[in-house]
Amino acid sequence: MERRSVHQPRIKHLAVKVGAVLTLIPVIAVGLLLYALYARGMFDSTQALTLNAPDAEGVVIGMPVMFSGFPIGQVSGMALDELGRVRIEVSVKKKDARWLRISSVFSLEKQFLGGAKIRAFSPRMQDPELPAGAERQLVSKDAAQDIPQVIARANSILQNVDEIIRPDSSFNQTLANLKSVTERMAGEYGVLGGVTGSPDQAKKVLDTVDSVNALLASLKGVTARADGVLAKTDDRMFGQGGVMDEAKRSIAQLNTILLEARDSLKKADEVLANA
């Protein structure tokens, strides 16, 4: 098979185009490298801060230090000191260092999802600024740490709930009783039915109340009559010419009779003495 040799047409500005392609590669490679270095904070002036922590779990180099949700620095190194504690070296951007005060608190927060975060919190902004190279304690806050306890408590609560909602539990029985009571309350005899337990009983109670009412009515008549009798008695006893008046008079008469009798007796004594 004959193959025609490829005739290549003359390309315009070939050298310029090839030069552009050849320049593109190093420019992009160096640009990307510089951007990566800039992103890693290579060109920012920073100040050092050392955080002491009992445990460096979840802390990685390059991890951001957040202040109010903004990254102000990052972990640049970690090492164990002679006591086995962790020294975390943090480089804080110079321009953001003013947010850190001597009263600032640093906490390591481990999350359920995603990496841990170091947070800085400055409660009093009027305090003096944190000097470069300062050492602070890193407080660890672990969202997962309390989980076992929470689960244990939740378990006991759930067990109690289980006890309560079991079909033969006293709570359920109480509810059943309450239900029957309220059902009866909603019946013909209302609350009375609920309290007495059955319509018959409630009817009896109502009958009793009726009888008591009748009794009270007759008692009323009796007391009225008794009142009349008492009034008459009063009149007879203490009224004008009543028993009391007569008695008074009788006693006065009796007194005069007794006086007369004494005189008579005196006379009789004299008679006897003279005899």
């Binding site: 990307l32 490298l33 951007y35 990566a36 800039y38 992103a39 951001p64 903004f70 990254p71 990052q74």
Partner: peptide
């Protein structure tokens, strides 16, 4: 922008490049 730059710094280190 800060998140973006920080993430680039985290992922694109010298060995990766």
């Amino acid at each position: 922008d800060g998140d973006f730059t920080r993430m680039i710094g985290k992922v694109l280190d010298i060995p990766v490049l």
